[in-house]
Design a protein around this nucleic acid. Structure first.
Length: 861
RNA sequence: GCCGCCGUAGCUCAGUGGUAGAGCGCAUCCUUGGUAAGGCUGAGGUCGGCAGUUCAAUCCUGCCCGGCGGCACCA
């Protein structure tokens, strides 16, 4: 009997899989039912971390499971390889970003391969391969030709640390999502992708994504922020300010409350406000508004302030009714038109403002059951349902019909139009960085901006970029930007901006379907494989990558390059891997490897192993360098093997939740691996006896076997990997309860069946161990190619049921009855039971409830 | 403030309208030629709280408490 040795077994089976090319899918022409499993591809940092282990292990379980279920599975891997870390490494250490990146890829690939993932490595590519980004430049040209890409001057988010423009999605709480620096507003010429063209469709599409977490769908819906309302212009009461002859255009979602209007407000950076700023008092007020911070907390607590411009507009339904125009700090320029009409009675912001500046508050919506004569608004705006009153032609209408009526009137008077407004802005895609996909255009003094013809693509990065200084290395390259105009042939300069790396990751899943195609996408391959059936990744991309990818997929679909609008039919967002933190009294963080945790009298304390110094055990937090609570996967693989590491991250908690890494946890997984092997190794070799249905012990084991197949299959289908694994633990305990030694021939046969099932069930989680076990019991071929076991429904039911017997809802005993026994029969058995009858002494039986095969309850008093 | 998720053994989590479970940890014992280990046995639970529905609630319903996440001057 030999102990299980992962160091020997694991590389052996990885080699065997590679030799047999078992993870290479059949081509589209096979017509087989397909299943595309994809995990978000990694940034090649060069180091594998536990988050990767969890992410890729999760996807691998699905891929291996679906393969065993007969699907033609595509499970590829690549690298999201452009981006700032390479530039920072270049600047700090003087290395070449390209060499650094490809070096990292080598190391990461090794680490991922060690994980034993069922990946078709022949499809691997990196986004920094010219072969990939050249194809990206190709479809970029197509989108530009169609007007989906454009260049305009605009106010953009400028990250002063990373020295680049950021998209709105990449600014969190007023700070750059990577650098954490406070973002500045700058007016720049910028490249945009017209994602707003698809705003409606992106919202509508969410409804079809029934295998996405609700949470992510809600987040995207919020981000797009669609609202329906009315855009109309107020006419000036008096002479119009210069340039505003057409009136003052506002946007509202509550046209039903127009008769409750109190004033009109404009944003401090509204063009009209800027014009009025020639008055020093107005300028001073605007400056005051800009002082406030950008963080949510600051916005939340900021007091509403306003400035009365002295201008008046006329009410659209009553020219004699004059409304004052205020500049107010709570109005946002980049939403709607940057101007509003205020109805304080039915909007809290307007009410706060009106009370402060003593402006009129006129309720026009009467809540159900209230009396029009007495109903009033004091400090709380009423935003609920009701009937419109004090509003002329709207009187008596409910809110929705009133909205429609008001819009119709405004439209009839040609003063405005019903309008849908979005929070979503167009996607700013240019980055002033050298390590990215060059935007393939040339600036010509005569011809303007000219696309580089497709036969001249890729516009490749030069090899000799200088990254020693901050800023855009492409811009300061001595020769690269100088070229000739593709159109007129005269001297011209290349665009030196590169594309946001989120563009790179917006179509890689499509490229995987044929990574060597001479066009961006091989339609035959894409039509067969897409959409991705199961996508796995972190929740942090809920509105970044996942929104961009949905948009680009739509754009490429309209371009005729793809046939699907939604790239990811199923999405699973996994939780983080956390670890306890340890600190010395001095506050210094201590690595888990240096710490020894001792439990005494039920109290856990931790000391530094080498010195015995007491350290404070802190919260479990996401593994991070700064808190030094990182556990390196490679070290775990060395000690316990890959399978134990996989098993632990899969078994510890539900996959969508955070999981806490612990040394004792992985040791438990490692012990399980050994117990599994010991069980297989104890099985007698040689011919297997026939199954014997008369053998009670054998039947009991078979019942467990078949119940486990059912439960585990359901668990994997429902992403409850941890509960599936819990069933395997129980299954193993049942096997141990029917040991091979001294087993009857029936039990021997049931054990053989159980072991064969076990090896296949455990294979998605601990694939190497499963192969070793499968091999030990003489399984045919490799377990990776073995079909998933099928349960026999007849065997998932026990023939004899143990029924608990309750008296007045409390358990007082149990009886055995044949499965399916009728109530009358069960009642007879109950009344024959001495323990039960003793409990019933002196009581009158009022009712006996028998739930077939489940329980008996006697109501007595 | 709004929305969502979660609360079961010391810890991490399964589970079910009907006998409360697993792993780790803990305790006792066995083994010491499976040994930088293995095994037996055991203790430990008001299933967050309160009400309701029910013959029966950890499970269903309502309210409350606690934790986590998302959104939030978007007119």
């Amino acid at each position: 009997m030999a102990r299980y040795n992962p160091k020997e077994s694991e590389p052996k089976w990885r080699k065997a899989w590679e030799t047999a090319q078992v993870f290479k899918p059949q081509p589209p022409e096979s017509g087989l039912p397909k299943y595309y499993v994809l995990e978000m591809f990694p940034y090649p940092s060069g180091r594998l971390h536990m988050g990767h282990v969890r992410n890729y292990a999760l996807g691998d379980v699905i891929a291996r499971f679906k393969r065993a279920r007969g699907f033609n599975v595509l499970h590829p891997m690549g690298w999201d390889a452009f981006g700032l870390p390479a530039e920072n490494a270049a600047m700090e250490r003087g290395v070449d970003p390209k060499a650094w990146t490809y070096d990292n890829i080598e190391r990461m690939r090794e680490g991922l391969k060690e994980l034993g993932l069922s990946i078709d490595w022949t499809r691997e590519f990196a986004t920094c391969d010219a072969a990939y980004y050249g194809q990206q430049q190709s479809w970029f040209q197509d989108l530009w030709a169609r007007g989906l890409v454009y260049r305009r001057e605009g106010i953009v988010n400028w990250d002063p640390v990373d020295q680049t423009v950021l998209a709105n999605e990449q600014v969190v709480d007023g700070r750059g999502w990577r650098s954490g620096a406070v973002v500045e507003k700058r007016k720049l010429n910028q490249w945009f992708m017209r994602i707003t063209d698809y705003a409606d469709d992106l919202i509508e599409g969410l409804k079809t994504l029934d295998r996405w977490p609700d949470k992510v769908r809600t987040m995207q819906e919020n981000w797009i922020g669609r609202s329906k309302g009315l855009k109309f212009a107020f006419n000036w009461a008096g002479s119009a300010p210069a340039g505003f002859d057409q009136g003052l255009e506002v946007y509202t979602t509550r046209p039903d409350t127009l008769f409750g209007a109190s004033f009109v407000g404009i944003a401090p950076d509204h063009p009209l406000a800027e014009q009025l700023a020639s008055d020093p008092k107005v300028a001073a007020f605007i400056a005051e508004c800009r002082k406030g911070g950008a963080s949510e907390a600051e916005i939340e607590t900021a007091e509403k302030i306003g400035y009365d411009t002295g201008l008046f507009v006329s009410h659209p339904f009553d020219p004699d009714w004059k409304l004052p125009v205020w500049i107010a700090n709570f109005i946002l320029m980049d939403y709607g038109t940057g101007a509003i009409f205020a109805c304080p009675a039915h909007d809290q912001r307007d009410l706060d403002f009106a009370r402060k500046y003593d402006l009129p508050v006129k309720p026009v919506v009467l809540p159900p059951g209230e009396d029009a004569a007495t109903w009033n608004v004091e400090t709380e705006a009423y935003t609920g349902p009701g009937t419109i009153f004090r509003s002329q032609f709207l009187d008596g209408l409910e809110i929705e019909p009133a909205k429609a009526m008001a819009i119709a009137r405004i439209e009839a008077a040609d003063q405005g139009k019903g309008a849908t407004v979005y929070r979503l802005r167009d996607w700013g895609v240019a980055r002033q960085r050298g390590w990215g996909c060059p935007i393939p255009v040339v600036h010509c003094d005569d011809c303007g901006i000219v696309a580089v013809p497709k036969d001249q693509l890729p516009v490749a990065l030069p090899e000799d970029l200088d990254f020693s200084k901050p800023g855009n290395a492409l811009l300061r390259h001595p020769t690269w930007r100088h070229t000739t105009c593709p159109s007129c042939g005269k001297a011209a300069t290349r665009e030196t901006d590169t594309l946001d790396t989120f563009v790179d990751s917006s179509w890689y899943f499509a490229r995987f379907t044929n990574p060597t195609a001479s066009t961006p996408i091989d339609k035959t391959a894409a039509d067969y494989w897409l959409p991705v059936d199961q996508y796995v990744g972190g929740i942090e991309h809920a509105v970044l990558h996942l929104l961009y990818a949905r948009y680009i997929t739509r754009a490429l679909c309209d371009e005729g390059m793809l046939s699907v609008k939604e790239p990811f039919a199923g999405l699973f967002t996994q939780g983080m891997v956390t670890h306890e933190t340890y600190r010395r009294q001095s506050g210094e963080w201590v690595e888990p490897g240096e710490v020894e945790v001792i439990t005494e009298g039920g109290i856990r304390r931790a000391v530094i192993a080498a010195t015995g110094e007491q350290v404070v055990i802190g919260d479990s937090e996401k593994m991070s360098k700064s808190k030094r609570n990182v556990v390196a996967p490679e070290e775990i693989f060395q000690v316990y093997g890959v399978d134990a590491a996989r098993l632990f991250v899969l078994s510890d908690s539900p996959p969508e939740r955070d999981t806490g890494w612990s040394a004792s946890g992985v040791e438990g997984a490692w012990r399980f691996v050994n117990r599994v092997w010991a069980e297989f190794d104890s099985q007698a070799e040689g011919p297997v006896p026939a199954l014997d249905d008369a053998d009670v012990a054998a039947c009991a084991l078979r019942t467990v076997t078949h119940k486990t197949i059912k439960a585990l299959t359901d668990a994997v289908e429902g992403f409850r990997f941890n509960s599936g694994i819990a069933r395997l633990y129980e299954f193993l305990n049942a096997l141990k309860a029917a040991p091979a030694e001294r087993a009857s021939s029936g039990v021997q046969a049931a054990r053989a069946e159980a072991l064969s099932v076990f090896a296949r069930l455990v294979a998605p989680f601990t694939p190497h161990l499963a192969e070793e076990c499968w091999n030990r019991i003489g399984g045919e071929g490799m377990v990776v190619a073995a079909p998933w076991p099928v349960y026999d429904p007849a065997l998932t039911e026990e023939a004899v049921r143990v029924l608990p017997v309750q008296v007045n809802g409390k358990r007082r005993g149990e009886i055995s009855a044949p499965a399916g026994a009728e109530p009358a029969e069960v009642e007879k058995l109950v009344m024959a039971d001495a323990e039960i009858t003793r409990r019933l002494e002196g009581l009158t039986i009022r009712k006996v409830i028998v739930v077939k095969d489940r329980i008996v309850n006697i109501v007595a008093g």
